[in-house]
Nucleic acid binder design. Structure first.
Length: 417
RNA sequence: GUGAGCGUAGCCCAGUGGUUAAGGCGCCAGGUUGUGGCCCUGGAGAUCGUGGGUUCAAAUCCCACCGUUCACCCCA
């Protein structure tokens, strides 16, 4: 038997209620703020991710799905959502539109990781990006939207962690300061942190090992090293958030996984504990588009993992709206009635009324059982008598009342509901 | 990539060396020559994850692989 590949899963109809719920809230939010949908290919040039995400991140080092196609081109399955959006922005000259350009996407991302709760090899991200504007008010809009999105889903218990990791000018100085601080403690560092010290010192801060955390406590803070411009930007972000009364926690240890971030970074944590906890995160990436060959274009965005959102919706027992289902089930008895049933279903569908017709010549009892399990409000029954009289039995499955009506009146009767 | 737990029907699961592998949900049929849900009766459905080994005998013990879950790592 074939199985879905490791770390991937089928999303069965029962699950789809959650998915549609999340997708609808996402689309509504973006429409509310004027972010337009963008769908990018699942395949990209492997270099797109290698160049932008790179730098001491596992994503590129060992988690990318890359392969050569028949022409020898190196392709990669989408590893994250932001770089493709930037690629599309450049490729289609969206920088010629009035800036900022506001876009959103919902789609799969692939990473070759060991699957775990809230972590899959194929997962789905909802993200939105505002490209071409450096105003801290835009950082705040992105955060504000994230908060509104989670509230609209029904979450109430979550915190917004906020930090600034500076820019090209100030970050190197801070990295150096960190390096100096940590090099006094190299013998106490865990093996992973010894590597981080060399490759990506910022990540030293979020090591979970207690021994390493102690060293992080006394480490210099990025906020003391920000250049005046980054400092002012960070102050404005906080000021605007306060004006909106959006609660946030400054977290000097917050360092996002992807390497392209500058200045504002933020993450949304549910209060409920769990290893794979972050519901989403984002930040500013003022250098990414330049890295991709465009001119200097500041940008900021957010992404959330749909599977994790759904996991938390279930954990917190948040009710989601159910999907619409057909209103009636059409049952028949005998070959002549079957033809009438097929014709009736055709006409109902033509009239835009959702119905399911029986197939397979089952007993009436069996057909009504099926109607029952489908939870339709009505059953329409056509037997020999009804064929002769050009009628149908319309049975209300909730009240148990039924009446015989002319075939021609079935549509209007159902339309009343 | 590291560590630990678990793999018995579509789903939940009993069975820890000895007849035809038990039960519940679901599915199908019957109990009403044309009426669902509740109830009753019957039925179908399992190479006991895969391969190898130990044994007279393996779902049960051992090994390997695969899958899955949880944690580390990493991240959404």
């Amino acid at each position: 038997m074939y199985k879905a590949p490791r770390g991937t899963s089928d999303i069965l109809p029962q699950e789809q209620t959650y998915w549609k719920y999340v997708e609808e809230k996402a689309a509504f939010l973006c429409q509310l703020y004027g972010y337009q949908p963008l769908t990018t290919p699942i395949l990209e040039d492997a270099q797109l991710f290698a160049r932008t995400v790179a730098g001491g991140t596992d994503i590129v080092d060992k988690e990318m799905y890359t392969f050569e196609d028949r022409s020898g081109q190196k392709l990669a399955l989408r590893a994250e959502g932001t770089a493709p959006v930037c690629r599309a922005y450049l490729e289609h000259g969206l920088f010629n539109l009035p800036q900022p350009v506001k876009l959103y996407y919902i789609g799969p991302a692939f990473r070759y990781e060991r699957p775990q709760a809230g972590r899959y090899r194929q997962h789905h991200q909802f993200g939105y990006e505002a490209l071409g504007e450096a105003d801290p008010a835009l950082d705040v809009e992105i955060i504000e939207m994230a908060q509104r999105f989670l509230l609209s889903l029904g979450f109430s218990e979550f915190s917004i962690q906020l930090n600034s990791i500076g820019c090209k000018l100030c970050q190197p100085k801070y990295r150096e300061a960190l390096r100096q601080h940590y090099s006094n403690y190299t013998t106490y560092l865990c093996p992973d942190c010894k590597v981080r010290l060399l490759r990506n010192p910022l990540r030293l801060l979020d090591c979970k090992k207690i021994s390493c955390q102690k060293i992080a406590e006394t480490a210099p803070k990025i906020t003391d090293y920000l250049c005046p411009e980054c400092q002012a930007h960070f102050q404005s972000v906080q000021q605007y958030l306060e004006a909106l009364v959006i609660p946030f926690q400054l977290n000097y240890r917050l360092v996002r996984g992807l390497d392209y971030y500058t200045r504002t970074v933020f993450e949304i944590e549910p209060h409920e504990e769990g290893a794979q906890s972050a519901l989403g995160g984002g930040g500013r990436y003022d250098n990414l588009i330049e890295q991709l060959g465009g001119k200097h274009t500041p940008a900021v965005g957010f992404a959330a993992g749909i599977e994790r959102l759904i996991l938390n919706l279930k954990k917190q027992k948040i009710k989601v709206s159910v999907l619409p289902k057909p209103i009636a089930f059409i049952a028949y008895l005998g070959e002549e009635a079957k033809i009438e049933a097929i014709k009736l279903a055709f006409e109902l569908h033509q009239a835009g009324i959702a119905v399911i017709k029986a197939t397979g010549d089952k007993s009436l009892k069996g057909q009504l059982r099926q109607a029952n399990s489908l939870c339709t409000n009505y059953a329409i029954i056509i037997g020999e008598k009804e064929v002769k009289n050009h009628t149908a039995v319309l049975r209300d499955m909730i009240t148990n009342k039924q009446k015989t009506i002319p075939l021609a009146e079935v549509i209007s009767s159902l339309k009343q509901n």
